[in-house]
Nucleic acid binder design. Sequence first.
RNA 1: GCGGAUGUUGUGUAAUGGUAGCAUAACAGCUUGUGGCGCUGUUGGAGUGGGUUCGAUUCCCACCUUCCGCCCCA
Length: 415
Amino acid sequence: MKLDISTVKGFQDYLPPESLIRDKIKKIAEKHYKLYGFLPVETPIIEFDELMKPDALPNEEEDEAVRDRFKLQDRGGRNLGLRYEFTFQLARIFKENQNIKLPFKRFQIGNNFRDEPIRAGRTRQFTQCDADIVGDSSVNADAECISLSSDILKELQIKNFEIQVNNRKLLNAIIESVEIQEIKQVLKELDKIEKIGSDIVKSNLKKYASSNQIVTLFKLVEKPLEFFKENAFDGAEELDLFIKKCSLYGIETKFSPSLVRGFGYYTGNIFEFILPDKKTTIVAGGRYDKSVGKFINRELPAVGISFSIEALMGLCMNELSSLEIEPIPKVLIISFNQDEESIKLSKKLRNNNIACSITEGQPSKALDFANHQKIPFVLFLGEEELEKQKFKIKEMSTGLESFLAEKQLLAKLKK
RNA sequence: GCGGAUGUUGUGUAAUGGUAGCAUAACAGCUUGUGGCGCUGUUGGAGUGGGUUCGAUUCCCACCUUCCGCCCCA
């Protein structure tokens, strides 16, 4: 039998240089999460399938949702699955750690899995970068998530995004005011307006509403937020406060009444970072107040943001490829039969946080290697250097060589 | 899951019902104290399975992959 060595559909290996960019994205995200006071959390990849069932979907729709999960069984016959996202695990964490001090700001970077169709920027194993605040119901928490995401994107050199915001209570109030019953179906259609255009959505809506209702609905959807505030629509005030808070952070948001996000999960303000030219979402999130506390009979308000490295790289490769990646290693030591000395030197370099490799091959090969790996410095270590008590170092980009004493060498490489 | 397209060394490509060619990359040598260029050599290929045929990479069928829509995105 022939061995199939290909990766499974939707799964892949990541090698340099791509892996270096992925690494960089994670580090940048982590840095900003911590700057905003979020602490790291790690959770299992495998969970009981039961725990992953969605909160709000009625039973008859469960089958549909189940399909997107990877399911497996252990030898004990337990029904398990691979986690498809992070936030449902928060509910368990709060069940098992009821003395967690609020607000609890946690971030998590790791792999999630969905057994679903793939396309550009969408794989079945994906690295999600999440930050959530549990136990703070103020719009400041919402705004912090926006500001945080915005900072991350900017450091990733992605600047052409637009932040669209909406509120689920407001959406529900709008649809209820038109007296349409099929809220969920209508939400589904509204979400497509930007993508497929109002006309198609209008005709799709005929299944759920009368022509009059549709006309009224579309008139409403085009109103500014002021209108909803003046007429005391539920959620309008909350959204307005949120938008104002964002502007205190220096962030401009755009009210988009047709922004929906997922069903049955979000309860308040919702937001998406969108690339207007590509009409695609790169970062998204919102407030979900009913989920985290569901096992402890208490409402734990929560808000968070999330993005996946795969989507980001699939959509923003131009920007991301201009990220500065630290060379690994920074120095290649070419040893001319100087085992002891080269190891001694490598220890010193590493103690000073300078990444290095040692090679004993031909210098031409070593230089060629350094050239291809973009290693910025090559250091020659032979009898000549030992006699002089100085190291010969060559800067690959210029080809210039200089003899440096140890102190000077360290100073130069630390730069 | 549904529909459409796709598939030739790692990558990009060419021709062909009868020995699969080119470029590039990789590896080795020219070159055990100096890289990018050059020269020489080596490795490596028809997605998988079936069918038609004396013979299939080529024609047919199925499956798979990848891409594009749909669905979904808690």
